[in-house]
Design a protein around this nucleic acid. Structure first.
Lengths: 131, 131
DNA sequence: CTGGATGCAAATGTTTTGCAGCATG
DNA sequence: CATGCTGCAAAACATTTGCATCCAG
C-alpha cells in the first residue's frame, strides 16, 4: 500500500557521502542534483522532516537564517571560521563535564547540547591567505 | 546634522531592563510598546543592526526561525527547556578550558563561543507541573 | 482500489530594502 | 539646508501547507 519513499534515502546518502558536516535544505537539494535527482524543495523538506522524526538526522542551530541538519550519528561541535566561512568539526568530549556541572548547580537536566565556536581556522591564520 | 537616533537607545533600555536573556525583534518591539513607543519593525531591525555594529548587542544563534539578540556585556551560555521553552542562562567559565584545547589540538583560534544546552529545567522536572 | 509520496503553487513569517518625509544640528 | 532617522510599503527569502496526481501493493 502506498508509494515507497525514495527521497529520504537519497538525502541520507548525500549527507553520508559529502565532504560537509551540516547541510541546509538548499545544499541537500544541490547534492541530490549531483546524483541526477531534482526533487521539489518541499519534498526535500518533508524528507528531512521524516529523517529527523526517525532520529536519523539532527537539526543543528548554526545560522539563524536557514536550517542546518547533520546525521545524528555524527554529532560533533562546530568551528565556524570568520575568515573562509568553513565549518570544521571536533568530537564532543569535554562537554560532558560541563553538562554535569550544570545539572549539579542549576538543577537543569541536559539532554542535548550544541557548542559553536567562531574564530579563525588554521589556514586562515596563516598570513598571505586571508580571503 | 541629521536626526538623532532615538530607537537604538530605547532598544538598549528594553534589553537592559527586562527579565529576559535574549530577544527577538518582535519581543523587542513588544518591549518598546510597553514603554509607549511603537516603532516600525524595520526601524527596530535597523536599530538592532546599529547596536550590533557598535558592539553593544550580540547576535545569538538560538532558534533558526528568528534572530535573537542579547546585550554584549551579558554573555552567558543558554539553557533551553524542552518543557516550558524558557531560556535560562549560566555564566560561561568552563568553556575557557575547552577553547584552549581546541586551539592546541585543531589550530583553531577561537574568538567567540556559544553553548546551547537543551533539556528540562528544575521546575519542569518536578512532577505535576509539566506543560 | 487504497495509502502514501511527490510536484506544483500558494500561504506564511520574518528579514531586508527602497523611497519619501521629517526632524535636528 | 543637509544629513540621517523613521515609517510605510514592497521585495526577498526560506519554510510550510493544500491539493491534485501518481505509483506501488
Amino acid at each position: 500500500m502506498g508509494r515507497r519513499a525514495v527521497v529520504p534515502e537519497q538525502v541520507r546518502a548525500v549527507m553520508a557521502g559529502g565532504g560537509r558536516h551540516c547541510w541546509t535544505l538548499a545544499e541537500l537539494q544541490e547534492g541530490l542534483g549531483a546524483l541526477g535527482v531534482v526533487p521539489d524543495p518541499s519534498t526535500v523538506f518533508r524528507a528531512v522532516g521524516r529523517l529527523e522524526a526517525s532520529g536519523v538526522v539532527r537539526r543543528v542551530e548554526l545560522d539563524e537564517r536557514r536550517a542546518h541538519f547533520e546525521l545524528a550519528g555524527e554529532h560533533h561541535e562546530h568551528l565556524v571560521c570568520d575568515g573562509c566561512g568553513e565549518v570544521e568539526a571536533v568530537p564532543c568530549a569535554l562537554v560532558v563535564t560541563w553538562v554535569e556541572e550544570v545539572r549539579r548547580e542549576c538543577g537543569f537536566e541536559v539532554s542535548d547540547h550544541e557548542v559553536l565556536l567562531r574564530g579563525r581556522c588554521r589556514r586562515c591564520r596563516r598570513p598571505g591567505q586571508q580571503p
